[in-house]
Design a protein around this nucleic acid. Structure first.
Lengths: 140, 140
DNA sequence: TTCTTATTTGCAAAGGGTTGCAATAACTTT
DNA sequence: AAAGTTATTGCAACCCTTTGCAAATAAGAA
């Protein structure tokens, strides 16, 4: 499993600077055991370093995502959550009734990916996806 | 095919009022031959009726969507587009390189829907979906 | 046709995210 | 160790959408 140190190496290797802000953002993502939002990261970091600005969170997340170090999950309506890339890929089922989020194994989409590549010559992004609907409990 | 008049009937039957603003929003959606955005609707209506406010567009779209009369397609990053529900369901492939949007027949998702219902007891929403990736031209 | 009242609108403010720009600071070079 | 260079930050403004609230108005009652 990739540690924070490895991510830091990847950054410097590619010519990016190691700023305290980036390290604090990284620490917040690594520490979190769930899919964290930009707001949550901001709240954690600003508590220790009051001058910290939320636009830095967004810019850092965009960088880490571009380098493939974190995944973005668009939960619809503009809500996006982040997750360390090395903690496993998966997709999500979001219940629109109770808000529950169910993890979905990546392999469930293998068939669809195949069809898109074969019939549409379209190479789909492997990023986390969310599907909306109603979970078992709410369908009763 | 359902005409604007039918949609108007559906609104009044359910106790919603027929305001000029709602009729103008409806006309703009029906008239458009593509997936229209809230901004585009607003621009069309405000040209005829300057006092018109964009929050009315959003509230009307939310109502029409709730009643199942228009579909919402979330193209990611908070960009949402609207389409009359009776003009056919389909999903979209969005090329992240050139921006092209390819329509995808709804049946492509049949297999996935089946798996979600069977293995996850999850009833997925039939709304328009967008998948991101790279189209044939950009993959060359 | 007028009165009544609950829905809907317009407005203004706010929420979440993005962007341009000047100042700062991480890394490089000397 | 100091200076130079350029990426990065903080700030403020902006974009798109949502929301609270008082004023306006559509539809039903009288």
């Amino acid at each position: 499993m990739e540690k924070t140190g490895d991510i830091i190496n990847r950054l410097t290797e590619q010519g990016y600077r190691l700023t305290p802000q980036r390290m604090m953002v990284l620490a917040a993502i690594e520490k979190s055991d769930h899919h964290i939002s930009a707001e949550e990261i901001y709240a954690q970091v600003v508590a220790k370093y009051p001058y910290f600005n939320i636009s830095t969170v967004y810019r850092t997340l965009e960088l880490l995502h571009r380098l493939g170090l974190v995944t973005e999950t668009d939960l619809g309506g503009g809500r996006v959550r982040y997750h360390p890339a090395d903690k496993g890929h998966h997709h999500h089922l979001v219940c629109q009734e109770c808000g529950k989020v169910i993890d979905l194994d990546e392999s469930v989409l293998d068939h669809l990916k195949l069809v898109l590549r074969k019939d549409y010559k379209f190479d789909p992004d492997t990023r986390h996806l969310a599907f909306f609907g109603r979970c078992a409990d709410c369908s009763k």
